[in-house]
């Protein structure tokens, strides 16, 4: 590696990223401190914490809380589904079928995000697949959003957890068995702690993707409001407030990333 700044290589991409992206991003964070004239709906530049104050009270605090709850539930469900599934893929399925099994899980990851969310409408709607085959449907709303988001982000959890199982040294498992540990004790006291960083890496995806989602929520959520839909709703009439909501989701994500960094999750991304 040469110790030299390659200006020729960096000029064009940095110009693009700084002007087209960083500039736009900085301006939207600044906008979060502006206000909106309530008569003309025009954005008034300045510095005010009004938007954040409004966020901390009533409806919007509820929306932030609900969004966090949904993101947490989706994350827990994804872990609950992904860990046993990845275990089967890594240690029960015969080696020659393993790549087929992995491909089966990966292919839906690439299938259109929008269509996957849309697919759950047919599942959840009245007289839909769930009602006709299982006898009932939760309908559009909170449960539907948790279910659909779990569906959407599940492969993002399975992949790192499966990679974690593959990295697990066989010798650790043998040592545990030699010392008299049952399969269950080995799983609980050797495998799960070793998987920690992989699971944490998966939660970065499931948590942050749930936090910013508004498409799936608007498709299966009925009247349910989350951070993303609130941003969209305020986008036209009160851009500074929408910007403040967006800023909040970025702040929550950064806090989550910093917390996860201590588990070693970021090296597993």
């Amino acid at each position: 590696m040469k110790r030299k700044t390659p200006y020729g290589l960096l000029a064009a991409p940095l110009l693009w990223l700084v002007v087209a992206y960083l500039g736009a991003l900085a301006s939207i964070f600044a906008t979060a401190f502006f206000t909106t004239d309530s008569f003309t709906n025009e954005v008034v530049p300045g510095f005010s914490l009004d938007n954040f104050r409004a966020l901390a009270t009533g409806t919007y605090a509820g929306i932030v809380g609900r969004t966090l709850l949904i993101a947490a539930l989706v994350t827990v469900l994804c872990v609950g589904l992904a860990v046993p599934f990845a275990f089967v893929m890594a240690r029960v399925v015969p080696a020659r079928w393993r790549s087929v099994g992995l491909a089966l899980v990966l292919v839906p990851l690439w299938a259109s995000y929008l269509v996957k969310a849309y697919a759950w409408r047919a599942m959840l709607q009245p007289e839909g697949v769930l009602e006709r085959t299982l006898g009932g449907t939760p309908g559009y709303g909170f449960v539907a959003v948790v279910l659909t988001l779990t569906y959407l982000w599940l492969p993002y959890m399975i992949l790192p957890v499966y990679a974690g199982f593959e990295r697990l040294p066989e010798s650790h498992l043998e040592a545990s068995a030699d010392l008299g540990g049952s399969d269950w004790a080995t799983f609980r006291r050797v495998v799960l702690p070793a998987l920690g960083p992989s699971i944490a890496a998966g939660t970065v995806f499931t948590f942050s993707l749930s936090l910013g989602d508004y498409i799936a929520v608007s498709i299966v959520g009925g009247k349910l409001q989350m951070l993303g839909t609130a941003v969209l709703q305020n986008n036209v009439l009160d851009l500074p407030f929408a910007a403040a909501l967006g800023t909040v989701s970025v702040v929550i994500m950064v806090i989550y990333l910093v917390a996860m960094r201590r588990t070693g999750a970021l090296e597993n991304l």
Binding site: L14, L17, V18, A20, Y21, L22, G23, A24, L25, S27, I28, T31, S208, L211, G212, Y214, G228, V231, L232, N235, L239, A242, A243, G246, T247, S249, V250, M253
Partner: peptide, 21 residues
Amino acid sequence: LLVVLPIALPGIVTGLALQSA
């Protein structure tokens, strides 16, 4: 970090920023 940022931040924030630009 700057390269990764556009997919690391929630898409809705990126969208909002580009729209206002």
